[in-house]
Write a protein that binds this DNA or RNA. Structure first.
Lengths: 330, 330
DNA sequence: ATGAAAGCGCTAACAT
DNA sequence: ATGTTAGCGCTTTCAT
């Protein structure tokens, strides 16, 4: 049906080897032949067959991104960065998203299938023993999770938690609570640790709420529930640092429904700096999501070229973004 | 390096054909042999080589989505729908996103490369003569754009514009403006037509603003500029229907910066119903983005199975979502 | 400078 | 029930 190098070879009266050479820009071809083959290929509308090329070259030109849940602005932002960087490379991008983090392994297995992608970007998925086995032999770059055996790009979550809490302390808030996640993934644990450290330095006691929202805790619903719990407390906190912006959005809803508002009744600081955060004036700790995705891809591409380099652990420093929701009490 | 069917064949003392049969579940294999081959394959940790399989089968198991710009919540939502449906199929998903709509053809060409994907989902990209040529022979489903030669999933934009405008009229607003896009793509033109129809029925005159934001008009910046222009008018409108939520967000910012607010000083209705719309209380015309993506994939998969069916043009009816930004003047 | 031929790893007739 | 073999479309030695 469609034109192959055999057709071109016949038409140009050369062998398929010569056609292949010309098409791949080998210098070992006579000028006249080269021109003729090019002309014929052009005229016949030749297009290389990606699959056949890949099989012969033993390389697919594909990288894949494995994402725990797409219904999450954090991942969406990272994905944008990934896509941008991939578009600037010679690779094409396969996207594997799970319905929730617990089902990520199925997608991961597909992404890792032999002869599929050359490398994979794995997001927010801790490398346990089973996964280490799966990943064995593949070129992998980790995002939002670190592991000594792989390149990784993470944010200093503990610092982020500290910055947020310190900011609330500085603004004079007295009873600063924290909303975390159950079950608590490592990033959340680290954010909480930063919160606790800041409080400890100030000689305050932590107050932690979290609702058990399986399978995915970084959600509006989880934030809503946790805030509801906080509001039911006999002595209501006057500020809260929340483990993610998504939860913070839910928490703000709960606040609003209770006839309260931030920062007047309770100051709120989130984490991530997703786009809505700016729109609603939510103070937050910013992760450079776009850049994380971009750099991870660049690293993956580099590693594909040089698999020997020792793994690097890139830790971004998050930055505090102060908006209306944590304004100092007047 | 990695184990092939030859290794298994040798180990199980059968031919590669038998191995292939067993692995593909052919019934024409003796029970004992089947069991033995399975055991060996398992033990050796065999994984089929996607590429080789694809080349032999002449089918890749890949579909691709071509997106004009990823920095846009509308496309993100559609992409989620696409991903959800793809995950339920036997296909894997390639994502090709352009930096802006004018550069979509490069990505489209990659997506269409012979031996890459079996079908492509093309978003918001009108099929002109050049593209028709490109798409010729490929299995394509169109989203947000219609063309008689292909399956397409679109929304009744004109109806949407009508609904929005009619709603504003009903709520008693007097001077209802419209913010469109320059250059004006077909969906925007249709939305404007709906707006004009509603106004004409009410015997009012249209008032249209739009800023020239190349290459992509459905943006916050564009909305901001257009609203600024409206505010500079001697007689300020008291309501506005805006061609997209993204622009509406920018318009709301402009309003706020001018010390004004919606709906008090000007009622605002957007289009799309992206997630932030709900958060900021923006009235809007909802497109079923997730479902559009999902159904488009299902259609693509169906067409891949039966290429003879005549193209279908699926037109969704948008729905009006009333929130605070267009509340009736008290 | 060019051609012949051996793969790449698998599927699918066609034989037996 | 199983094996032999010819592709799938291309790249890449190895000859000439």
């Amino acid at each position: 049906m469609s034109v192959t190098i055999y057709d071109i070879a016949a038409e140009a009266e050369v062998s398929i080897a010569t056609v292949s050479r010309v098409l791949n820009g080998s210098p070992r071809v006579a000028k006249a032949t080269r021109a003729r083959v090019h002309r014929v290929a052009e005229r016949m509308g030749y297009q290389p067959h990606a699959l056949a090329q890949s099989l012969a070259r033993q390389t697919t030109g594909l990288v894949s991104a494995v994402i725990p849940v797409l219904t999450n602005d954090f991942y969406m932002e990272v994905l944008r960065g990934i896509q941008d960087a991939v578009a600037q490379s010679d690779f094409d991008l396969l996207v594997y998203a799970a319905s929730d983090p617990e089902h990520v392994d199925g997608q991961l297995a597909r992404a890792l299938q032999r002869g599929r992608a050359e490398g994979v970007l794995l997001l927010s998925t801790p490398v346990d023993a089973a996964r280490r086995e799966l990943l064995n032999g593949s070129t992998v770059v980790l995002l939002d999770v670190a592991d000594a055996a792989f390149d990784s790009f993470t944010v200093d979550n503990s610092l982020g938690g500290y910055l947020a809490t310190h900011h609330l302390l500085e603004n004079g808030f007295q009873r600063i609570a924290h909303i975390s996640v159950v079950p608590e993934p490592l990033p959340a644990r680290e954010r909480r640790a930063g919160y606790e450290r800041a409080l400890a330095e100030a000689g305050r006691t932590p107050l932690i709420a979290a609702s058990d929202q399986r399978p995915y805790g970084f959600s509006e619903a989880a934030g809503y529930e946790a805030m509801t719990a906080l509001l039911a407390l006999p002595e209501r906190p006057d500020a809260v640092f929340i483990a993610s912006d998504a939860q913070a959005l839910g928490a703000l809803s709960a606040l609003r429904e209770a006839g309260l508002s931030a920062p007047h009744d309770m100051a709120v600081v989130g984490f991530d700096d997703i786009k809505v955060a700016e729109v609603v004036g939510l103070s937050t700790v910013r992760q450079p999501m776009h850049e994380m995705g971009r750099l991870a891809v660049e690293r993956l591409v580099a590693r594909l070229a040089d698999s020997q380099a020792p793994p690097i652990q890139h830790v971004f420093s998050p930055t505090l973004v102060v908006r209306a929701s944590s304004a100092r009490r007047v």
